[in-house]
């Protein structure tokens, strides 16, 4: 490696927290400035930064906001756990077994190409506007993403470790839990994080279409009343919360389980 490229690589590795914080603050500041410019040129249709800050403050102290967040978070949690569990099981089966792969592949291809609102509509047609229809629609929309990530990761596993496992007769259970699962841990995290990220994006859509309560239906309600600042404030609070959960829960767990690779 040339000294120039080595120092470039070193720069990337040595970026400290203060540099990262500075980059973050700069990005946020640029975003705020860009938003304010959009406000000025939209003749007031887009609320200004000040209005959004005020609306966010009000929403944060309103008890109803937290009730709505709780309802939505519960739906996300159920759909996330169900889609991750089902998706990992199908992805592993398809990655390990050619017959399972042949069976699930076309289904997953179709599921990936299906627009998310269609899941919601079908769930409503089948189950009505019950609480469960939203969660089931959300789960169905997430499963294909998890399956795709897990399947490709299991297919790309190191066959040499399979041979080692066979020679030392680890057995199916030990192989799956101690060799394969740990080998595909980075993919499992990617699948879980993707599932979670899509969950809180799609849940808003599901709630806007089918549910009377929840952050999604509240955002839609504010949109209907043309309360743009309130609508954006709710979205902002929810985005920050979900990012926090992602960083603290998934980030922390990933750092622990992947300690060996550092």
């Amino acid at each position: 490696m040339s000294s120039a490229s080595a120092s470039a690589a070193g720069f990337h590795l040595d970026v400290g927290w203060h540099r990262r914080a500075l980059a973050f603050v700069t990005a946020v500041a640029l975003g705020v400035v860009g938003w304010q410019i959009a406000t000025w040129i939209s003749d007031g249709w887009i609320p200004g930064v000040g209005e959004i800050v005020d609306a966010t403050g009000e929403a944060l102290v309103a008890a109803d906001t937290w009730d709505q967040i709780l309802i939505t978070s519960k739906r996300i949690l159920i759909a996330f756990v169900a889609s991750t569990a089902i998706g990992v099981a199908i992805g592993m089966a398809a990655g390990l077994n050619r017959k399972a792969e042949a069976f699930f592949r076309p289904l997953i291809v179709i599921a990936l190409a299906t627009p998310d609102p269609l899941y919601v509509i079908i769930a409503i047609l089948v189950l009505g506007t019950e609480e469960s229809s939203g969660v089931i629609a959300l789960t169905l929309a997430l499963i294909p993403f998890v399956v795709t990530i897990v399947h490709s990761s299991v297919k790309a596993r190191e066959s040499q470790l399979d041979e080692m496992s066979a020679v030392y007769r680890l057995g199916r259970r030990r192989y799956l839990s101690r060799v394969l699962a740990r080998q595909v841990t980075p993919a499992l995290f990617a699948a879980a994080r993707t599932s979670f990220a899509f969950a809180w994006k799609i849940v808003v859509l599901v709630e806007a279409i089918s549910q009377p309560r929840g952050i999604g239906s509240e955002i839609y309600e504010q949109f209907r009343l043309l309360n743009a600042a309130e609508m954006i404030a709710l979205a902002l609070i929810f985005i920050v919360l979900m990012r926090l959960v992602d960083a603290v829960v998934f980030g922390g767990l990933e750092r622990r389980l992947m300690a060996w690779s550092r």
Partner: peptide
């Protein structure tokens, strides 16, 4: 297995045996 220490790599085959 890179995610297991030296000792636990050996433990795995001892357990299986």
């Amino acid at each position: 297995l890179p995610w297991r220490t030296v000792a636990s790599n050996i433990e795995l085959v001892l357990e299986a045996a």
